[in-house]
Design a protein around this nucleic acid. Sequence first.
DNA 1: CTTATTTATTTCAGTTTGTAAAATAAAAAA
DNA 2: TTTTTTATTTTACAAACTGAAATAAATAAG
Lengths: 420, 420
Amino acid sequence: MKDAITIMPTEDIAGCGPLLPGGRGAKIPLRQQVFQFVRGNGTAARTDITRALDISAGSATTITADLISAGVLREIATPGRENGRGRPPVALQIVPDVAHVIGIKLSYEKHTAVLTDFAGNIVADVAIGTGLKRRSLPQFLDEITSLIAQVLVAANMTIGQIKAIGIGLPGIIDHASGRIVWSALLQDRNEDLRGAFAKRFPMPLYLDNDANLLTLAELWFGAGRTMRDFAVVTIENGVGMGLVIDNRLYRGTHGMGLELGHTKVHLDGALCRCGQRGCLEAYLADYALAREATTALELPFKALAPPGEILNTLFQDAKAGNSAAQTIFRRAGRYLSVGLSNVVQLFDPPLIILSGERMQYDYLYAEEVFDEMQKLVLSEGRKPCQIAIHAWGDLVWARGATALALSALTDTMIGGEEPV
Amino acid sequence: MKDAITIMPTEDIAGCGPLLPGGRGAKIPLRQQVFQFVRGNGTAARTDITRALDISAGSATTITADLISAGVLREIATPGRENGRGRPPVALQIVPDVAHVIGIKLSYEKHTAVLTDFAGNIVADVAIGTGLKRRSLPQFLDEITSLIAQVLVAANMTIGQIKAIGIGLPGIIDHASGRIVWSALLQDRNEDLRGAFAKRFPMPLYLDNDANLLTLAELWFGAGRTMRDFAVVTIENGVGMGLVIDNRLYRGTHGMGLELGHTKVHLDGALCRCGQRGCLEAYLADYALAREATTALELPFKALAPPGEILNTLFQDAKAGNSAAQTIFRRAGRYLSVGLSNVVQLFDPPLIILSGERMQYDYLYAEEVFDEMQKLVLSEGRKPCQIAIHAWGDLVWARGATALALSALTDTMIGGEEPV
DNA sequence: CTTATTTATTTCAGTTTGTAAAATAAAAAA
DNA sequence: TTTTTTATTTTACAAACTGAAATAAATAAG
């Protein structure tokens, strides 16, 4: 079973964006396919395009000429080949400073922002802490404005150079309308962030929830680039999930599906912060573990200690051999197996990426957990689902947000539809 | 909440097949769109096509002329309009006897077959009982051959007129390769039914599992025709599920997802016939209820009584006020709530169709069950998921199989890809 | 140094799949 | 009859490609 688990390196590859064309048989115009291919590979010659996309050489010439005259593509000098016979290919690349975008992740304790160029290269990033618990929309906008200002200073750029902004936050977000249906960060519900943003800034704003941001980050910069279908599961404050089908993010019909954390794994089970009982999250999320920890470790009741700290103590204790602490992790691990097996059973992805910042508790991500997961799955004739563990830096989310902005921006600049 | 539940009539509408074009922005050729539109509506004039598909009148002329000369479409005399002003539209329809298909459902106690024309009209149907438990592939093929022969006799047709055959059966079926990875109907696993079939019959064979058949039936003939996305859940021998996304059947990556019956709803819970514990099916399927019934009703241990009979007794007892019997249904109902809420939580469909032959136990399909389901779902800003209960006759499955055959046949006759 | 060979790119004459607008057809109303 | 209205057909033309021949730019061979 061990070979079914991969610990992913935090590699640094050229190019960004999905490397496969979108939806089955979907005939997106060659213009976009070419653009995405070049962006995906960093640089590419016309022949590469011809071969990779299986189009005629004539089309490659016409389309690249078109994109070059549109200013989004350019030829670059190649560092002389070593063993070439015929006419040398001339490499093309995205013109990086045609446009820039900012991606923002808003969270409970820290907000981050990343500024990238049109080719997806990071130009600058900033992080700010926040003391606020729940904010009004104007306060929220002030925080966003401040983040934008800071990252512009760090990049030594002006707001006019930013052509799109992507924002992600936990909660129920309506991607299509740009409204925040509900979020623990805000005082009120159903706030029209896009509308309010438009009164302060000229460029378009794209919103999504944080799990989708992470999934997008995997699709654009991570393990999912070469995968047509995969699922992403993340355990942080809650248990989040994202799904890519046919190289595009699947958001559910109303854009509020994939709430893995609130699927029920026990009738009348443990209490979840959503008010329900038996949610997967109530066995796995940091607050759930912290809750048990206060009992098991006979900690003094401290309402003020952040769950993160309690968990670290708990983890140290477990490592040191405290069997109560170990039980807590072990039970959580079993529930993780159940949750993952349900994902496999329903979505049948070839790969599940466990992704996020806090992929650290070995007890949760132990081989036995994945072994048990595979056992819980009907395995008649099934290829076992691969599991990849991907620990990113804390900029993942914001990078995902830049992907959101970039893909929308590409839509408007190249025309037509892109596989977000 | 009551308005969120619909009991569907078994209507009889003209036309068949999905009424909406496939995948988002998917540019399927107009030729196919036109064909599907006419088939979907039963009859349609060129103007209807022009307006509905938003194409130019010229294209309508060209394409219909093309389809007419290909022999798949024809003009029919219209029964004079009542209040028409201008030139009367001339109606077009699919030529029904260009081709015929047979759809077959193979099951534990009964096999059914339906023969339809190219427009999807039923020409004949047959059902045969079967005493066999587990068969060899040759025995299986003999049964299929016999069904085909009988339905041909009933329709007074010859095998040469059949251009495609669709077959569905419970188990793990590889739709793409036409192999039966595993089925309780067969002795051996990984049998190449398509290959074996090809040695006896000249026409192509399309295979799928029974839950997908039912979903296809809803998409082609039932409640799903006007829905872009919906889920189908069926409770029979097991708990099955199907999903339509963007007007096409979603099969999971390896074509073996959507095993709702084997998602876990209880760690170390009730024993399922799959060998695992805590599967949803172990609380809901007929064998699970029958298992409890033998305890509660203090029935003599009868290994021979079929679950259906035991269940009927149980149901009568519950109706008569036996509280043990009622508890059994009530618990099953609660688990159904949990299963459905998990479906909503993960897939977020606007509609779940509870479909199948045996939608009869009011205790399971009571309003309270759906009420509880809605309560189990995170409902912040969410439109409540509609529930429709659709009790079909026992030909549903075989009709779904004809849809499988018809859609593949259309592919080859009209060219290109269809949203199966 | 010149010529062949090889590989990359461009040019150019179709083809396919549509559209838009004018022309034609067929009916009811004036 | 003539007008009006709606349906269908015709015709010219555009967009997005393809395939094959022509051209470019390099190395290898003589």
